[in-house]
């Protein structure tokens, strides 16, 4: 199995009733490991189905295949449905390239630094108080 780790830690959220986390991806997500690793994110979504704000730190992510992009799209759908948000930070150029070709950068905003991503994540979503 290809090596990949996904770890999550809380970030203090400015709005009450919200959960915000930085989720760090390291290694390569491919056919051999993505189904197993995806469960970690589904567990986070299950614990906080409403108002979940996730910052995916892709600095250590070296590869992602089409299935991991499929999962990312599914997580995005579930999180936004619950009134939350997903942003990506520090993705390598090959990761940004693949996200762009499948059109995911039109849905999920990508930021070059963790601070910018954190700031964008915790901004109130348009149309909400």
């Amino acid at each position: 199995m290809t090596q990949a780790t996904i770890t999550a830690e809380d970030i203090p959220a400015s709005l009450q009733g919200t959960v915000a986390k930085v989720v760090k991806f390291v290694g390569q997500l491919d056919e051999s490991n993505v189904d197993e690793k995806a469960k970690i994110i589904y567990a986070i979504i299950e614990q906080a189905p409403k108002n979940l704000f996730l910052l995916f730190d892709f600095e250590g992510l070296e590869y992602m295949n089409s299935k991991s992009i499929g999962y990312l799209t599914d997580w995005y759908g579930k999180v936004t449905e619950g009134g939350g948000k997903i942003v990506i930070s520090k993705a390598k150029s090959n990761i940004l390239d693949i996200l762009q070709v499948v059109g995911l950068t039109q849905l999920i905003n990508c930021y070059p630094t963790l601070d910018e991503a954190k700031f964008a994540l915790l901004q109130p979503i348009a149309g909400t108080n």
Binding site: S66, K67, G70, V101, V102, G103
Partner: peptide, 12 residues
């Protein structure tokens, strides 16, 4: 594309 799969050949 709605499912987890199906992007490999057509989108990449």
């Amino acid at each position: 594309h709605t499912g987890i799969r199906g992007r490999g050949l057509s989108k990449i």
